[in-house]
Protein backbone atom coordinates (compact mmCIF):
# COMPACT_ATOMS: atom_id res chain seq x y z
CA UNK A 1 0.00 0.00 0.00
CA UNK A 2 1.32 3.43 -0.90
CA UNK A 3 1.62 6.24 1.62
CA UNK A 4 -0.37 8.69 -0.49
CA UNK A 5 -2.79 7.60 -3.20
CA UNK A 6 -4.38 10.18 -5.44
CA UNK A 7 -7.06 8.78 -7.76
CA UNK A 8 -8.81 10.52 -10.65
CA UNK A 9 -8.50 13.85 -8.89
CA UNK A 10 -10.18 16.84 -10.56
CA UNK A 11 -11.08 20.36 -9.58
CA UNK A 12 -12.88 22.82 -11.80
CA UNK A 13 -12.95 26.55 -11.15
CA UNK A 14 -15.96 27.51 -13.24
CA UNK A 15 -14.99 26.39 -16.74
CA UNK A 16 -11.28 26.05 -15.92
CA UNK A 17 -10.13 22.50 -15.30
CA UNK A 18 -7.22 23.39 -12.99
CA UNK A 19 -6.65 19.71 -12.17
CA UNK A 20 -8.11 17.15 -14.52
CA UNK A 21 -8.27 13.45 -13.71
CA UNK A 22 -4.85 13.16 -12.09
CA UNK A 23 -3.77 9.89 -10.47
CA UNK A 24 -0.47 9.10 -8.81
CA UNK A 25 0.88 7.62 -5.63
CA UNK A 26 3.78 8.37 -3.35
CA UNK A 27 5.49 5.34 -1.84
CA UNK A 28 6.94 5.26 1.62
CA UNK A 29 10.44 6.76 1.64
CA UNK A 30 10.14 8.19 -1.85
CA UNK A 31 10.83 11.66 -3.23
CA UNK A 32 8.12 12.30 -5.81
CA UNK A 33 8.22 15.46 -7.88
CA UNK A 34 5.54 17.21 -9.90
CA UNK A 35 6.78 19.41 -12.71
CA UNK A 36 4.96 21.50 -15.28
CA UNK A 37 4.81 24.97 -16.79
CA UNK A 38 3.37 27.94 -14.88
CA UNK A 39 -0.32 27.57 -14.18
CA UNK A 40 -0.24 23.83 -14.82
CA UNK A 41 -2.09 23.10 -11.59
CA UNK A 42 0.76 21.94 -9.37
CA UNK A 43 0.02 24.15 -6.37
CA UNK A 44 -3.65 23.34 -6.79
CA UNK A 45 -2.87 19.65 -6.28
CA UNK A 46 -1.10 20.60 -3.04
CA UNK A 47 -4.06 22.66 -1.92
CA UNK A 48 -6.33 19.72 -2.64
CA UNK A 49 -4.18 17.38 -0.56
CA UNK A 50 -3.97 19.86 2.33
CA UNK A 51 -7.75 20.22 2.00
CA UNK A 52 -7.86 23.94 1.28
CA UNK A 53 -9.75 23.16 -1.92
CA UNK A 54 -12.75 20.87 -2.35
CA UNK A 55 -12.12 18.23 -5.04
CA UNK A 56 -14.75 18.16 -7.79
CA UNK A 57 -14.22 14.43 -8.27
CA UNK A 58 -11.69 11.82 -7.22
CA UNK A 59 -10.20 10.68 -3.96
CA UNK A 60 -7.10 11.16 -1.84
CA UNK A 61 -5.95 8.40 0.49
CA UNK A 62 -3.21 8.79 3.09
CA UNK A 63 -1.91 5.80 5.02
CA UNK A 64 -4.90 3.82 3.77
CA UNK A 65 -7.37 6.41 5.04
CA UNK A 66 -9.66 8.48 2.83
CA UNK A 67 -8.91 12.14 3.56
CA UNK A 68 -10.87 13.64 0.66
CA UNK A 69 -13.54 15.08 2.94
CA UNK A 70 -11.50 16.07 6.00
CA UNK A 71 -11.06 19.67 7.20
CA UNK A 72 -7.75 21.41 6.50
CA UNK A 73 -6.82 21.41 10.19
CA UNK A 74 -7.18 17.64 10.37
CA UNK A 75 -4.34 17.04 7.90
CA UNK A 76 -1.28 18.01 9.96
CA UNK A 77 -2.17 15.65 12.86
CA UNK A 78 -2.22 12.76 10.36
CA UNK A 79 1.43 13.44 9.53
CA UNK A 80 1.32 15.64 6.42
CA UNK A 81 3.28 18.90 6.68
CA UNK A 82 3.70 21.47 3.95
CA UNK A 83 5.46 24.62 2.84
CA UNK A 84 3.99 27.32 0.63
CA UNK A 85 5.12 28.68 -2.69
CA UNK A 86 4.90 32.25 -1.29
CA UNK A 87 6.33 31.81 2.17
CA UNK A 88 3.60 31.84 4.80
CA UNK A 89 5.40 32.32 8.10
CA UNK A 90 4.15 34.09 11.20
CA UNK A 91 5.97 37.36 10.60
CA UNK A 92 5.61 38.93 14.04
CA UNK A 93 7.04 35.95 15.88
CA UNK A 94 10.53 34.59 16.30
CA UNK A 95 11.91 31.57 14.49
CA UNK A 96 11.50 29.56 17.69
CA UNK A 97 7.86 30.58 18.05
CA UNK A 98 7.21 29.62 14.44
CA UNK A 99 8.66 26.16 14.91
CA UNK A 100 6.71 25.76 18.14
CA UNK A 101 3.51 26.40 16.17
CA UNK A 102 4.72 23.66 13.87
CA UNK A 103 4.48 21.34 16.87
CA UNK A 104 0.89 22.35 17.57
CA UNK A 105 -0.47 19.01 16.34
CA UNK A 106 1.75 17.16 18.83
CA UNK A 107 0.31 18.87 21.92
CA UNK A 108 -1.37 16.74 24.56
CA UNK A 109 -2.56 19.44 26.98
CA UNK A 110 -5.60 21.72 26.75
CA UNK A 111 -6.08 25.43 27.35
CA UNK A 112 -7.07 25.07 30.99
CA UNK A 113 -3.80 23.30 31.72
CA UNK A 114 -2.06 26.09 29.80
CA UNK A 115 -3.79 28.84 31.81
CA UNK A 116 -2.32 27.43 35.02
CA UNK A 117 0.88 26.24 33.36
CA UNK A 118 0.67 22.84 35.04
CA UNK A 119 3.84 20.73 35.28
CA UNK A 120 2.61 18.63 32.36
CA UNK A 121 2.65 21.77 30.20
CA UNK A 122 6.22 22.59 31.20
CA UNK A 123 7.29 19.04 30.39
CA UNK A 124 5.62 19.29 27.01
CA UNK A 125 7.25 22.66 26.29
CA UNK A 126 10.67 21.18 27.03
CA UNK A 127 9.90 18.18 24.84
CA UNK A 128 8.91 20.50 21.97
CA UNK A 129 12.15 22.42 22.33
CA UNK A 130 14.25 19.25 22.31
CA UNK A 131 12.67 18.20 19.02
CA UNK A 132 13.06 21.70 17.61
CA UNK A 133 16.70 21.78 18.61
CA UNK A 134 17.31 18.74 16.40
CA UNK A 135 15.62 20.44 13.47
CA UNK A 136 17.53 23.71 14.03
CA UNK A 137 20.78 21.82 14.10
CA UNK A 138 19.92 19.78 11.03
CA UNK A 139 19.09 22.89 8.99
CA UNK A 140 21.88 25.01 10.49
CA UNK A 141 19.48 27.58 11.88
CA UNK A 142 20.76 27.93 15.46
CA UNK A 143 22.02 31.46 14.83
CA UNK A 144 18.50 32.57 13.99
CA UNK A 145 16.69 30.91 16.90
CA UNK A 146 15.45 34.14 18.56
CA UNK A 147 15.29 36.32 15.44
CA UNK A 148 12.01 37.81 14.26
CA UNK A 149 10.84 36.54 10.88
CA UNK A 150 10.13 40.06 9.62
CA UNK A 151 13.86 40.88 9.63
CA UNK A 152 15.18 37.70 7.98
CA UNK A 153 16.48 37.45 4.41
CA UNK A 154 14.40 35.53 1.89
CA UNK A 155 16.69 32.50 1.73
CA UNK A 156 16.60 32.02 5.48
CA UNK A 157 12.82 32.30 5.58
CA UNK A 158 12.59 29.56 3.03
CA UNK A 159 14.63 27.29 5.30
CA UNK A 160 12.63 28.33 8.38
CA UNK A 161 9.46 27.27 6.62
CA UNK A 162 10.99 23.89 5.88
CA UNK A 163 12.05 23.69 9.53
CA UNK A 164 8.53 24.47 10.72
CA UNK A 165 7.14 21.68 8.57
CA UNK A 166 9.77 19.24 9.82
CA UNK A 167 9.17 20.23 13.46
CA UNK A 168 5.70 18.70 13.30
CA UNK A 169 7.29 15.29 12.84
CA UNK A 170 5.58 14.42 9.52
CA UNK A 171 5.48 11.20 7.52
CA UNK A 172 4.95 13.12 4.30
CA UNK A 173 6.36 16.51 3.43
CA UNK A 174 4.78 18.66 0.73
CA UNK A 175 7.32 21.17 -0.61
CA UNK A 176 5.99 23.78 -3.02
CA UNK A 177 8.99 25.07 -4.98
CA UNK A 178 11.57 24.76 -2.17
CA UNK A 179 14.33 26.29 -4.30
CA UNK A 180 12.50 29.17 -5.96
CA UNK A 181 14.32 32.43 -5.31
CA UNK A 182 17.36 30.71 -3.82
CA UNK A 183 20.95 31.20 -4.96
CA UNK A 184 22.92 28.34 -6.50
CA UNK A 185 24.61 27.56 -3.17
CA UNK A 186 21.35 27.71 -1.26
CA UNK A 187 19.72 25.41 -3.82
CA UNK A 188 22.57 22.94 -3.36
CA UNK A 189 22.03 23.01 0.42
CA UNK A 190 18.34 22.42 -0.15
CA UNK A 191 19.11 19.39 -2.32
CA UNK A 192 21.29 17.85 0.39
CA UNK A 193 18.68 18.50 3.01
CA UNK A 194 15.95 16.87 0.96
CA UNK A 195 18.16 13.83 0.45
CA UNK A 196 18.83 13.65 4.19
CA UNK A 197 15.17 14.11 5.02
CA UNK A 198 14.43 11.12 2.81
CA UNK A 199 17.35 8.87 3.76
CA UNK A 200 18.07 9.71 7.42
CA UNK A 201 14.67 10.73 8.68
CA UNK A 202 12.67 8.34 6.54
CA UNK A 203 10.21 11.06 5.58
CA UNK A 204 8.56 10.84 2.17
CA UNK A 205 8.58 13.98 0.07
CA UNK A 206 6.10 15.24 -2.49
CA UNK A 207 7.66 18.23 -4.22
CA UNK A 208 6.86 20.80 -6.86
CA UNK A 209 9.96 22.29 -8.45
CA UNK A 210 11.05 24.09 -11.59
CA UNK A 211 14.82 23.73 -11.12
CA UNK A 212 15.50 20.57 -13.16
CA UNK A 213 18.99 20.21 -11.64
CA UNK A 214 17.47 19.85 -8.19
CA UNK A 215 14.66 17.65 -9.52
CA UNK A 216 17.03 15.16 -11.15
CA UNK A 217 19.32 15.13 -8.13
CA UNK A 218 16.73 14.18 -5.52
CA UNK A 219 13.67 12.70 -7.23
CA UNK A 220 12.89 9.00 -7.38
CA UNK A 221 9.98 9.59 -9.72
CA UNK A 222 8.65 12.60 -11.59
CA UNK A 223 5.18 13.45 -12.83
CA UNK A 224 4.73 16.09 -15.52
CA UNK A 225 1.42 17.88 -15.87
CA UNK A 226 0.09 20.67 -18.05
CA UNK A 227 -3.31 22.37 -18.07
CA UNK A 228 -4.24 20.15 -15.15
CA UNK A 229 -3.73 16.91 -17.06
CA UNK A 230 -1.02 14.26 -16.69
CA UNK A 231 1.60 14.18 -19.45
CA UNK A 232 4.15 11.63 -18.33
CA UNK A 233 5.46 9.81 -15.27
CA UNK A 234 8.79 8.08 -14.65
CA UNK A 235 12.41 8.93 -13.85
CA UNK A 236 13.59 12.48 -14.45
CA UNK A 237 15.33 11.46 -17.66
CA UNK A 238 12.30 9.60 -19.01
CA UNK A 239 10.00 12.52 -18.26
CA UNK A 240 12.37 15.14 -19.62
CA UNK A 241 12.72 13.34 -22.94
CA UNK A 242 9.00 12.54 -23.29
CA UNK A 243 7.65 14.21 -26.46
CA UNK A 244 4.48 15.52 -24.74
CA UNK A 245 6.59 17.20 -22.07
CA UNK A 246 8.94 18.80 -24.55
CA UNK A 247 5.92 20.03 -26.43
CA UNK A 248 4.34 21.50 -23.30
CA UNK A 249 7.47 23.44 -22.44
CA UNK A 250 8.60 24.47 -25.91
CA UNK A 251 5.36 24.56 -27.87
CA UNK A 252 4.60 22.55 -31.01
CA UNK A 253 7.38 22.43 -33.51
CA UNK A 254 5.18 23.45 -36.41
CA UNK A 255 4.09 26.66 -34.57
Amino acid sequence: MSLLEVENLSIHFGGLKAVDNVSFSVEEGEVFTIVGPNGAGKSTIFNLISRFYEATTGSIKFDGRDITKLGAEAIAPLGIARTFQNIELFDHSSVMQNLLVGRHCQRKTNFLAHAFFLPSVRREEIEHREKIEEVLEFLDLQAYREKMIAGLPYGVRKVVELARALASGPKLLLLDEPASGLSVEETQDMAFWIEDIQKDMGVSVLMVEHDMGLVSQVSDRVLAIDHGAMLAMGTTREVQSHPAVIEAYLGREED
Partner: peptide, 16 residues
Protein backbone atom coordinates in the same frame (compact mmCIF):
# COMPACT_ATOMS: atom_id res chain seq x y z
CA UNK B 1 -0.63 34.49 17.31
CA UNK B 2 -0.58 32.12 14.35
CA UNK B 3 -4.16 33.00 13.46
CA UNK B 4 -3.30 36.69 13.74
CA UNK B 5 -0.35 36.40 11.35
CA UNK B 6 -1.54 33.86 8.77
CA UNK B 7 -4.78 31.93 8.93
CA UNK B 8 -3.86 29.76 5.95
CA UNK B 9 -0.63 28.72 7.58
CA UNK B 10 -2.32 28.20 10.94
CA UNK B 11 -4.77 25.75 9.40
CA UNK B 12 -1.96 23.93 7.62
CA UNK B 13 -0.29 23.50 11.05
CA UNK B 14 -3.42 21.77 12.32
CA UNK B 15 -4.92 24.72 14.18
CA UNK B 16 -8.71 24.70 14.13
Amino acid sequence: HAIRDSEVSARAMGIN
